[in-house]
Design a protein around this nucleic acid. Structure first.
Lengths: 144, 144
DNA sequence: AAATAGTATACTTATTCTATAGACTATAAG
DNA sequence: CTTATAGTCTATAGAATAAGTATACTATTT
């Protein structure tokens, strides 16, 4: 399961993607709209800013705004930033690889293969899921 | 990531699957072979026994043994028993469904779809991964 | 009867998650 | 140039969960 932090991040980013290129959005507005504790949201947006996904503008009329294009931010990137590894086992993780303590020999491990498959499919689906696609999908769904 | 408990369970079950229909295996033997703390393993095997995956025999010469056939136990079942939901969001979980607190309206949520896809693929791959297949795979791999 | 081995409950410890507090810094506007 | 606004940063507190341990009990086999 994704952490709350990660879910908050996704919702905040979708919110900002809906307002892409419409100027900075005040953090309090995002917190209110998405019902996210403001201080918690601050920490999240700060991380996203350090990862160059967002930019911020200080002072009156300031706030956060999407730096990358909505079609260039996908769910994989967000999840990795917030929750870390995507894989269900450390030994099949691309970015957070670690040998399994439990395994004697990775090469003859019959368990790995299944989880490699899961990781590949997860990666495929979630990297195709960009903020642009999510916003588009919401617009289509809400018009029905 | 899977919990240690879940990884231990998988390894213990694979160990028992390798010894299917060869009589009960003493818990200490499994603990030693897989380097699992014995007391922790007891709790795990007990749960698997209550779920009718394993049976046990008490007294001298007793131990645990696979009750279901190795081809009828898959990774999905084990993970569900040990860690709960497979899905990354509660609102796309089959067995542990809960509405998302974060969402206003599930029907117009653009995020859900992606995670539905991930869940389906994960389910497909892991339900095909039976203990029998894992054991077979290990035998093939170790002969190379 | 004695040894073996599984069953059950309770508890500890460590870690992570979620959330909050408060002081600080930069910017815009008057 | 002052004041209000709004983001930045560090620290920390409380709750929940995970991982492992201790102890007592019950059932079975020989």
């Amino acid at each position: 399961m994704l952490s709350k932090k990660c879910k908050y991040a996704i919702h905040a980013l979708v919110y900002l993607a809906e307002r892409y290129q419409q100027g900075p959005v005040h953090i309090q507005e995002i917190a209110d709209a998405q019902r996210i504790p403001k201080k918690f949201l601050e920490a999240i947006l700060l991380e996203l800013r350090n990862a160059k996904v967002l930019h911020s503008k200080k002072g009156k009329g300031g706030g956060y705004y999407l730096y990358k294009k909505p079609e260039d931010v996908n769910l994989i990137e967000i999840i990795r930033l917030m929750d870390g590894a995507i894989a269900m086992l450390p030994c099949v993780s691309l970015n957070y690889y670690e040998p399994c303590e439990e395994c004697k020999d990775e090469k003859t491990c019959g368990i790995r293969d299944s989880f490699l498959g899961v990781r590949d499919e997860t990666l495929r689906i979630l990297s195709e899921s960009t903020l642009a696609k999510i916003v588009k999908r919401e617009r289509v769904l809400s018009k029905k």
